[in-house]
């Protein structure tokens, strides 16, 4: 049981990184990114491809981070004149394109079979100790990422982004370069997603296209909406809450005696239902946001 809890906590931490990243984009910047999973994919495939071609884990990490920053930059550049909702659709489509490429370019990505046998983190340690060290690493990263996001949001840069989000034209008329701000925000937040993907790949030792299905993006959305859009602590809380709830669906299923198909359905139901419930009844989520800061002007 404790192994199970450790595993779920590690997964929650990896999702928390993704949620923090999406929260920077959507919560802080108002960028409705529905292609978040593609940025995670840069991390997983960065690790997998580096392993596949024997480049070593360090190059894998560099590859993951560079690819994600570049993709984030590209997301912000493509359709930069579109309204937020249309831009969201473009990101969803781009993420699907990337998933399809991952499914079909066998020579590079292992195609539908994916790439297996990726060496675990801390390979020198034995099973139980390794899990604990991975757990500590992930939790430390979440903490560091949370502090980084807080610093970013609370500072001058965060204020510029909020101003751009609230009134883009007004922001431009105050001398803000709104396109550059969006690109920087996407590039920086994408790196967080890539770190999550990279660790995930080494943690589960396998990378495949079914891991980067668009439904995962909506799971991350559900996490930040439940936690409170625009709030870092909220993003972390949301990620842990949903992951732990999902982890216990199978037990609940056994308890009330439902067939196994209901596990997947329960996940979807909770994601969708949670999203709708929070959007309808508590838009500010568990912990709301405040905009402002004359101090930083």
């Amino acid at each position: 049981m404790s192994d199970f809890i450790i595993h779920v906590t590690i997964m929650s931490g990896l999702y928390a990184l993704l949620a923090l990243s999406l929260n920077l984009q959507a919560g802080l910047g108002g960028l409705m990114n529905f292609g978040q999973i593609a940025l995670f994919a840069c991390g997983t495939y960065g690790a997998a491809i580096a392993f596949h071609f024997d480049f070593g884990a360090v190059s894998g990490f560099v590859l993951a981070v560079l690819a994600a920053a570049l993709l984030g930059w590209a997301f912000a550049s493509v359709g930069r004149n579109l309204q937020a909702d249309y831009w969201g659709i473009v990101t969803l489509a781009l993420a699907e394109v990337i998933r399809i490429i991952a499914t079909n370019e066998d020579w590079l990505t292992g195609g539908a079979q994916g790439i297996g046998g990726i060496p675990p983190l801390y390979a020198g340690l034995d099973g139980q100790t390794r899990q604990l060290v991975i757990l500590a690493t992930v939790l430390l990263l979440v903490l560091a990422a949370g502090l980084f996001c807080r610093h970013l949001i609370g500072g001058r840069y965060g204020l510029s982004i909020k101003i751009m989000r609230e009134e883009p034209q007004l922001a431009a008329s105050l001398g803000y370069d709104t396109i550059a701000l969006k690109r920087q925000l996407m590039a920086v937040s994408s790196v967080l997603a890539a770190v999550s993907g990279f660790l995930f790949a080494h943690y589960v030792s396998f990378v495949g296209p079914e891991q980067i299905d668009s439904s995962e993006t909506f799971l991350i959305w559900a996490m930040i909406v439940v936690g409170g859009l625009g709030n870092n602590a909220g993003a972390i809380v949301g990620a842990f809450l949903l992951q732990f709830t999902f982890a216990f669906i199978p037990f609940v299923k056994d308890w009330i005696g439902l067939p196994s198909e209901y596990v997947a359905a329960g996940r979807l139901l909770l994601t969708g239902g949670g999203l709708i419930a929070f959007i309808l009844f508590r838009q500010s989520g568990i912990v709301p946001e405040r905009v402002g800061g004359r101090r930083y002007v």
Binding site: E167, G292, V297
Partner: peptide, 18 residues
């Protein structure tokens, strides 16, 4: 859409002089 609604009056004015 000529003011930043969630900021104070002072913050709004200061922004113009950023």
């Amino acid at each position: 859409d000529n003011v930043f609604a969630s900021m104070t009056v002072a913050e709004n004015i200061m922004l113009g002089g950023r």
